[in-house]
Each structure stands twice: as C-alpha cells, then as structure tokens.
C-alpha cells in the first residue's frame, strides 16, 4: 500500500485518483501508523512552499525518518521542492533536507510561471522513467525551481531557455517538478513505475 500524504493542500486527491485508475493500492492519510506501515510515500503538493511546510507540521520529521531508513518517497511539485534544504518563495523556509540544494525563483527573462507541457530528457537509470523512452512531455506549473547541489542525485532536465531540473532520484528518494498525475499517459506510467518500485521493496522485507 502506498500512502499519499494528506496535509490540507490542493490536489492530493488527484494523485490518489491516478493510482486508483491504475489499479494500484493507495491511501490518502496523515496517520503516523499508516506512514510507518506504507510500502512507499507520496508527498504531493499544490501550495505555496511556506504554507505547505507549515501544513505538513510534525509529519515532516516522521517522513524524513522513514525516508532516511529506506522507504521509497516520491515528492511532486511543491512536495518535491520540500525535499531540498530551503526555499525563498514568499520568505525563507526550511525544507526536509533529504536532497542537497535550494529552491529559487525561475530566472527572469521568460514567461513565469513555467506553465504547460515541456519535453523532459530521460536519462538511463532513472527508475521512474522505465519504459518511457528517451524523452517525453510532462505538465509543469511552477514559478520556483530547484538548484541541485547533491552530488549523488541523478537528474532529468527540461529546457526552459535554461537547463531546469525536472526530476531527481537519489537512492530511495524521488522527486518530480512536473505533475505526473496530470501528465496524461506518460505521467500515469511514472506513477505505475513508482508503485512497482515500492511493491518490489515491500516483497524483499
């Protein structure tokens, strides 16, 4: 069972809907026992960073702990941004610090937010993209982006007139700046892949 963290921000339901559509077992919950027992965790998020961090509250520490112990974790959009050390959206906010890097404004000189479908180059070895080929379009909607400083992180980029991080993988920690739950068939495949990663992990235990 995958647990999608329910923490009073927008669009958590859409991630559950996508898993349900795929026939994958997933549950929307903020109960610590569910999080401890889950095969894997999805941290979704449509919110401003500061609001999301305060809405997550004490769950942040639990998520950091179980993720550090090896449970697969997928952060989406603001949920992905929260995996980094800090953000400067509407003030300075600390993130979970599971990935090295900062969340900063998209550089000026282009339309912001970065909104719509952009082509992501999919490097080999990023497990979320198994079976998707070398590049696919995904749906983005954001004004801030991560500057990754983590040497161990594998990164997939997209071109927004600069090389922008679209997805990160470091051991059991996964993140997508784009919304797989809103990216049509390619996005559903990303969620299916995450589910399969979690299921394989659960069978090993």
């Amino acid at each position: 069972m995958i647990v999608v963290i329910d923490y009073n921000v927008g669009n958590v339901k859409s991630v559950c809907n996508a898993f349900e559509y795929l026939g994958c077992a997933a549950k929307l919950s903020c109960a610590p026992t569910d999080i401890e027992d889950a095969w894997g965790i999805v941290l979704p998020g449509v919110a401003a960073f500061g609001y999301a961090v305060s809405a997550l509250g004490s769950l942040a520490e639990l998520i950091r702990r179980v993720a550090s112990a090896g449970k697969p974790l997928l952060g989406i959009c603001v949920g992905y941004q929260m995996l980094f050390e800090s953000s400067s959206e509407y003030g300075r906010h600390k993130g979970l610090g599971l990935l090295g890097g900062q969340v900063v404004p998209i550089p000026p000189g282009r339309v912001i937010p970065h909104m719509g479908w952009n082509l992501v180059e999919l490097p080999e070895g990023m497990r979320l993209f198994t079976g998707l080929g070398r590049q696919k379009h995904f749906y983005f909607a954001h004004s801030f982006c991560a500057e990754v400083t983590d040497a161990e992180a594998k990164i997939a980029y997209t071109d927004y007139r600069f090389e922008m991080t679209a997805s990160v993988q470091k051991e059991n920690i996964y993140g997508t700046q784009f919304h797989p739950e809103k990216s049509g068939k390619a996005g559903l495949k990303v969620l299916q892949n995450f589910h399969d990663i979690c299921e394989r992990g659960a069978q090993k235990c």
Binding site: G10, V46, A47, A48, F49, Y51, V78, E89, Y90, P113, M115, A141, H142, S143
Partner: peptide
C-alpha cells in the same frame, strides 16, 4: 489565493 496556493493555481 497566491500566498495560499501559489500563483500557478
């Protein structure tokens, strides 16, 4: 709304 949800919403 922007401060709560982010301006992309």
């Amino acid at each position: 709304a922007a401060q709560r949800f982010g301006n992309q919403c």
